[in-house]
Amino acid sequence: MDEMKLEKALQRIEEIVEKLESGDLELEETIQYFKEGTELVKFCTSKIDNLETKITQLTSQLGSVEKEEN
């Protein structure tokens, strides 16, 4: 799941909630979806919590190849 993009994960969560809300699932399926949904919510939350800005200055005719952190 590490490779999964945030956007995909968020879409999948929406899908799962919609499926569950439709209500005509077996108990076992419901629990399966619940597990998947909960894991995805955790995944997205930690992905957002772990975001970090790195500022990179590229080279142009203006010069300098510096790299500064935050």
Binding site: V17, I31, L51
Partner: peptide, 27 residues
Amino acid sequence: DSKELKMNLQEMQSKLTMIVNHKVMNS
């Protein structure tokens, strides 16, 4: 906005929990 995003995620989680609790009780 990551704050908004996280709030939405929390909402999704409580929706999931509610639906499953309901289903388990019905069962």
